[in-house]
Design a protein around this nucleic acid. Structure first.
Length: 512
RNA sequence: GGGUCGUUAGCUCAGUUUGGUAGAGCAGCUGACUCUUAAUCAGCGGGCCGCAGGUUCGAGUCCUGCACGACCCA
């Protein structure tokens, strides 16, 4: 269907999604100025994108809905948004207009807008169009807040049909590839992503109130540092060298503590060249923060205060549902010692697991393929095997083996351990933290140990970063630092069981 | 990497067991209706059945391969 008609001085047209020049030429009548010149057709099309945005919205739909909850008193308002439903009553039309947060009903009455405008509305305005309206607020007899339209204008034409109004978009592939359709047609999706923004705003609010500086450190680096992960490699033309996308911002942030910042944090994307599943996306949002003169005990206290505050802000109380689970964020959170836990579930001691032959033999017995793993990785696998999905309420697993933690400070009471914890919630690893290793001589030894593991085939072992060691040589104060997986935290706070449900445009394979 | 499932109208889905003219609801189009809200009523149009092969007189349906996606496992 296509129609080009003159309405006063405007030319309006409906363009089907499969329109072509030939199609237009064939269909356009002789009396119409457009003759198939492509430029001219574009001019006609440009009318669809009206540059005169009038009426300009005075308030968002959300603000109007919230501020006129009881008696709207025929207040005059202007709003704009996308039409999602139209109910034609003959000489009056009801429609709903929405944006990301809210929707409101409009009432277009022939008596009020006049015959010509009313006919124009019925003829040319479709579900999906973006329109602006001005009018008086009232309540219908069923009590719904509604705008009685006095003036309206089409602001942008929707050339395709919207997804079904009742079921929305279900196909996960379409939801991820065309997220805008998901946001338009599925209110639950819109809620998750507006909540995501609110959560991140609240995090910034909290850290700012505690005296932290927010900083930005490089994404492009000569060395991928700060975590055990495979990096993405890219290339800079004029420098003529390969660069790595960061896998963590840890080392640059610690350099800022050397520089005199006492409290810093960064929220940003990390990139890890690894598999994709419900808990992993190759690019994901990480928060890291560092505090001079704190240790990991201070961090645990801080984390309890911060998380329980955040959950109240977002959820209203400390208990929230996650899938089948109920999670209680009331502090204090349980602390479980790494090797104590392993002893309780296996009957084997720290000394047993720190012996490589024992660890490998044990791993084999429980069905872990250990042949291609380094000793630290074997221990890590064993711990994961016994702890996976076990810690539902927020739980700190503390005092990790030193050989798993090349950047963490040796435990004050045990040379085999480091002062490190991971925070688990709903069985997910949400956070990783430690008292920072600030001895440049020991840091070099730890890096050299990593190099050995790399030579043994562990592609995730960390690379030596000489610049970082140099920074440590100038003196890193005693410091504690923590990383928080923001996407996973948002999953828990929005009851989303897949990471793709909290990332607007998750990584997908190119469609052929 | 392995397994299971999915891909049919713009959208949500039937139809696959047992091969035989491609279906519904919503959306769209035409008409009626000045408080509807999954509006209602009457009528109409709409398909590369993911792609490529194969079996068959005949394939949306059976077989093989491929693509993309979801879930589970490693």
């Amino acid at each position: 269907m296509i129609r080009l008609e003159e309405n006063e001085k405007q030319i309006l047209c409906y363009i089907p999604s499969d329109f072509s020049r030939e199609f237009l030429e064939k269909k356009i009548g002789e009396e119409i100025v457009v003759k198939g010149n492509l430029k001219r057709i574009n001019n006609v099309l440009s009318i669809l994108y009206n540059p005169n945005v009038e009426p300009t919205p005075t308030k968002s739909i959300e603000e109007i809905v919230n501020s006129f909850d009881l008696d709207p008193k025929h207040e005059n308002v202007s709003i704009a948004g996308r039409i999602i439903t139209i109910r034609d009553q003959g000489k009056a039309v009801f429609a709903h207009i929405k944006d990301i947060e809210s929707r409101i009903q409009i009432y277009v009455k022939k008596d009020i807008v006049g015959d010509e405008n009313f006919n124009f509305f019925k003829e040319f305005i479709d579900v999906g169009d973006i329109i602006g309206v001005r009018g008086k607020l009232f309540r219908t007899k069923t009590g719904e807040l509604t705008i009685e339209v006095e003036y309206f204008e089409i602001l942008s034409k929707c050339l395709n049909e919207l997804p079904e109004k009742w079921h929305g978009i279900k196909d996960p592939e379409v939801r991820y590839r065309q997220r805008y359709l998901d946001l338009i047609s599925n209110p639950e999706t819109a809620e998750v992503f507006t909540k995501r923004t609110k959560i991140i705003n609240k995090i910034r609010e909290y850290f700012t109130s505690k005296g932290f500086y927010e900083v930005e450190t490089p994404i492009l680096n000569q060395i991928a540092s700060g975590a055990s992960a495979k990096p993405f490699i890219t290339y800079h033309n004029t420098l003529n060298e390969n660069l790595y996308l960061r896998i963590a911002p840890e080392l640059p942030l610690k350099k800022l503590i050397v520089g005199g910042f006492n409290k810093v944090y960064e929220i940003g994307k990390n990139f890890r060249n690894e598999g994709i599943d419900i808990h992993h996306n190759p690019e994901f949002t990480m928060m890291e923060f560092y505090v001079a003169y704190w240790d990991y005990n201070d961090l645990m206290k801080f984390t309890e205060d911060f998380l329980s505050w955040l959950v109240i802000q977002i959820n209203g109380n400390h208990k929230l549902k996650f899938g089948e689970l109920e999670i209680d964020f009331t502090p204090p959170y349980k602390k479980i010692k790494y090797f104590e836990y392993l002893y309780n579930v296996t009957g084997k001691t720290k000394e047993f697991f720190l012996n490589e032959d024992n660890a490998r033999k044990f791993a084999k017995e429980i069905g872990i393929k250990e042949e291609n793993l380094t000793h630290p990785k074997v221990i890590d696998k064993i711990f994961t095997y016994f702890s996976e999905k076990k810690f539902i309420n927020p739980t700190f697993v503390i005092d990790f083996p030193k050989i798993l933690s090349p950047l963490a400070k040796t435990h004050r009471n045990d040379p085999d351990l480091v002062e490190r914890f991971e925070l688990f919630i709903a069985g997910l690893e949400i956070s990783n933290a430690y008292t920072e290793l600030n001895d440049p001589i020991e840091q070099r030894k730890r890096f050299e140990e990593q190099l050995k593991q790399r030579e043994q085939g562990d592609e995730e072992a960390q690379m030596i970063d000489e610049d970082f060691i140099t920074a440590l040589e100038y003196g890193l104060p005693p410091t504690a630092g923590q990383g928080i997986g923001i996407d996973r935290l948002i999953m828990i706070l929005t009851n989303s069981t897949s990471i793709r449900e909290v990332i607007l445009f998750p990584t997908l394979k190119q469609k052929q």
